[in-house]
């Protein structure tokens, strides 16, 4: 397991635009950012590295967001905070997300200011 700097964030998202923009925003805020374009890449990355925060979509090829959350927090001693960022907005998916152990749920369209505040809060909490 690579010990990466504590402020590294993993973004999992299959929409290229969303991925790049969120990456830019978080980099501007001074975080280290890694990206994964689909579930397979994401599962690989969370297995190899430890992140300060994970921002994930729910519906992606190969593996969905729930699977990534369960992989991250399934049997770790120290939890990694997770924010779900999805266009899936029905109550069921949101409930399911929280049940799975997500710390926050952001629906698209996203307010950038809100995203930054929530990211900051979760990372500061977990220090």
């Amino acid at each position: 397991m690579n010990e990466v700097p504590a402020k590294n964030i993993l973004i999992v998202e299959d929409d290229d635009i969303m991925l790049k923009v969120v990456e830019r925003i978080l980099k501007r805020e001074g975080y280290g950012v890694e990206i994964a374009r689909d579930g397979k890449e994401a599962l690989q990355k969370v297995q190899d590295n430890k992140y300060a925060l994970i921002i994930t979509d729910l519906m992606m090829p190969y593996a969905n967001g729930f699977e990534i959350i369960s992989k991250v927090n399934g049997n770790a001693e120290k939890r990694t905070p997770v924010i779900i960022l999805s266009s899936l907005g029905n109550e069921d998916s949101i409930m399911e997300g929280f049940k799975m152990g997500a710390d926050d749920f952001l629906r698209k369209p996203v307010m950038v200011g809100e995203l930054v505040i929530r990211v900051k809060r979760l990372i500061d909490q977990n220090k």
Binding site: I17, V21, S87, K108, P109, V110, M111, G113
Partner: peptide, 12 residues
Amino acid sequence: IHYRKNFGGEIG
């Protein structure tokens, strides 16, 4: 339009 679907608020 694609951006607006993804980003709301003042950016929208």
